[in-house]
Amino acid sequence: MKEAWEIMNSISSDVSYISGGTLMQLQREQGTPLPENLISLEKIESLRGIKKVVSNGKTMLEIGALTTLADCCSDPLINQEWDLLSISAKSVASPAVRNRGTLGGNVSYRIGDTIPSLLALDAEITWFDGTETYKEPLYDYLKNPPAPAFGNTPVITSFLLPETPVSTKLMSFYQKVGRRESFIPSLVTASAYCCWNSYNEIDYIRLAVGGGANAPIRLKRCERFLKGKVITEEILALVYEEIIDEFKPDSDMFVSASYRKTVVANLIVSKLEDNLAESP
């Protein structure tokens, strides 16, 4: 890793890191020439692999940034406890592309479709700036990307997924909507992780949405609104408005911002509705 960094610093301009390179080939064909210099991270074994680690006394799943999307789909640990990630990874591109594309690449793309699931899972990200490795919540990283050190972009090294909260009643989902059933850029993505306490109140909730060229975000206001609430018809109607108010996506050539808002609200509220409290 250090070596990659040093090479990066030794080359003054027109340089980029590359791992799977699937996105770079797409851009090359679209007319953006490859940079003069590419620094391949592909063979840095320490950036690969999925394992449980203990960090600050907490067990977490560590996923190397170079782990392929295919491995994210099939890994038994991910499928068991963090299946939102495997579901989202399966929604990205095709099997052949997933064999090359990496989780780090998908996140560094900023609008990758795995991001909402990682946000819903409260993922942390680690990155290397040439001297040190930093760790912070993915949410913070996306909100305030680290400033390029010495003019270069830091390298994402891994993702850490905390153990998911357990509860007798929980709901989690990831859904992507595109213009075709598969192998399609998203129009809308939504993911949620939600737990209820014994009083039927929501005591843990993560809501993350994205889609198209809209950088995925967490709907923090909606989360705050829902926390401590018992789901009733009235709450559903209110949270529906709240989502539409908080999510501010852009329109593009294919759908309007209004469509994105409506679909995100529909997806989230319909899942909450499945957990409607019994009428008294």
């Binding site: 559903l236 109607a237 529906y240 808002k261 409506t262 609200a265």
Partner: peptide, 9 residues
């Protein structure tokens, strides 16, 4: 049918 599902204007 759902009240919450009205179209965002």
């Amino acid at each position: 049918m759902k009240q919450w599902a009205k179209v965002e204007q």
